[in-house]
Design a protein around this nucleic acid. Structure first.
Length: 405
RNA sequence: GUGGGUGUAGCUCAGUCGGUUAGAGCAUCAGGUUGUGGUUCUGAGGGUCGUGGGUUCGAUCCCCAUCACCCACCCCA
């Protein structure tokens, strides 16, 4: 038997209902906030992700589905959505056009990781990117949108908030932190040694208790923000307060992708295991110029659909459409004609085997149909169809000529 | 990539200290006298016991490998 690749799942009917419900709900909300759909390719030039996500990150360093295609191009399956959208933004010269551009997208992302609950090799994200808005109100808008989507889906969460600073304060802080870590000497673990070089802020949330004991007095980024970043961060907190969105400041929150600056946020759930981040995002004002565009402020977020799936509270399913069956093999032909008429305006599912009425009622039940319509000997003789409303429990005999005219 | 666990019917799981026809519940299908479901009773079908090797007279059970899933690390959505 040929199986799907490791960490790559099929999404079958029941799950797909949730999936589709999520997409519809999230898309509706994104549109209400003034965002437009954008579709970008699943395959992109590898250089795009190396430049945007950053070579030091794990996702570029070891998790990309990268290969040389038949035209000798170094390509890879997208590991995240932002880079492609920014590439499209620059390629279509929207940076030069100026103004505000707001996009949302959803689709598959690929990361060659060891699969685990809430972590797949092919997974789906819903994301949003906003270009051209410098104001921290747009950062707040992002958070409010995620909160709206999660609320609509009945999902509880905790919101973690941090500011990563900008090019004025971040490099200085980074240096300060690195020298602090170096002052700890050999007392820190191997992971921290590595992080010190790749992503120093990560050392702060090292799980190693010995490391943690050394870090209690480490400098915190939140205390080293420049005036601009500090005032934006304060404004953001005020806006969230005004909109009654609860948050906790997490000074160790670091987005894993290199392009983030200033606002960083993460929505986490305590009900889905260790892969608890259900949405993450932040500001990335430098990314457009990294990708050869005209400097343009930008913010965005992405939601992990699979991680959300089991948390979604679905609306109660309602019976809909028709189930049609024959109790006599001669009745199958008229049943099919009826189905054709119904399908012009409603859903119709036909059973092709002649069966007992009881069997048909069960069949109608199983597919959650509103009506069970049956033709048997009696109906054949009278040229009628017997229809039972499975909700109201009423039944009627309808002349075939009057049925769905 | 590291460490640990699991893999028996469509689903959830028993079981065999290695021995002949591998079980249950749910689901499916069929019946319970003439055509009424989601809530009854009876019966039936359905498994090369993840896959490939090895040990053995004999393996679903023991050993090795492999694949997949689960949990944690790591990373992140």
């Amino acid at each position: 038997m040929i199986q799907s690749l490791r960490g790559m799942n099929d999404i079958l009917s029941e799950d797909y209902e949730r999936f589709e419900y999520f997409i519809t709900t999230a898309s509706t909300i994104a549109k209400r906030y003034g965002f437009h759909y954008i579709e970008t390719p699943l395959l992109e030039e590898t250089a795009l992700f190396k430049r945007s996500v950053g070579e030091s990150s794990d996702i570029v360093g070891k998790e990309m589905y990268q290969f040389i295609d038949k035209g000798e191009n170094d390509v890879c399956l997208r590991p995240e959505g932002t880079a492609g959208v920014v590439r499209a933004f620059v390629q279509h010269k929207l940076d030069k056009k100026g103004g505000i551009h707001r996009f949302y997208y959803h689709g598959a992302m690929f990361r060659y990781e060891r699969p685990q609950k809430g972590r797949l090799r092919e997974f789906h994200q819903f994301g949003v990117e906003s270009f051209g808005v410098d104001s921290v109100y747009e950062d707040a808008l992002m958070i409010m949108m995620v909160a709206d989507i999660l609320k609509a889906l009945g999902i509880g969460y905790r919101l973690k908030l941090n500011s990563l600073g900008d090019q004025n304060c971040m490099p200085a802080y980074r240096e300060k932190l690195v020298s602090f870590v170096e002052s700890c000497g050999d007392a820190i673990c191997g992971d921290c040694e590595r992080r010190k070089l790749t992503n120093p802020i990560r050392v702060l949330d090292c799980k190693n208790e010995a490391c943690q004991s050394h870090y209690v007095n480490a400098p915190k980024l939140i205390n080293n923000l420049c005036d601009g970043c500090q005032s934006d961060f304060d404004t953001l907190k005020t806006i969230l307060d005004q909109h009654a969105i609860a948050y906790e400041i997490d000074t160790n929150l670091v987005r894993g992708l290199d392009y983030y600056s200033k606002t960083a946020f993460e929505f986490v759930s305590d009900n889905i295991g260790s892969q608890s981040a259900i949405a993450g995002g932040g500001r990335y004002d430098r990314l457009i110029e990294f990708l050869d565009g005209k400097p343009t402020p930008a913010v965005g977020f992405a939601l992990g659909i699979e991680r959300l799936m089991e948390l979604i509270v679905m609306p109660e399913s309602v019976r809909e459409g028709y189930y049609l069956g024959a109790m006599d093999s001669e009745a199958i032909a008229p049943i099919l004609l009826c189905a054709e008429k119904i399908r012009r305006s409603d859903k119709a599912v036909v059973e092709y085997e002649a069966r007992s009425l009881k069997a048909h009622l069960k069949g109608a039940d199983r597919i959650n149909a509103r009506y069970c319509a049956v033709i048997g000997e009696n109906e054949l003789a009278q040229n009628t169809i017997w229809v039972k409303d499975l909700v109201e429990k009423t039944e009627s005999l309808i002349p075939l000529n009057d049925f769905f005219v």
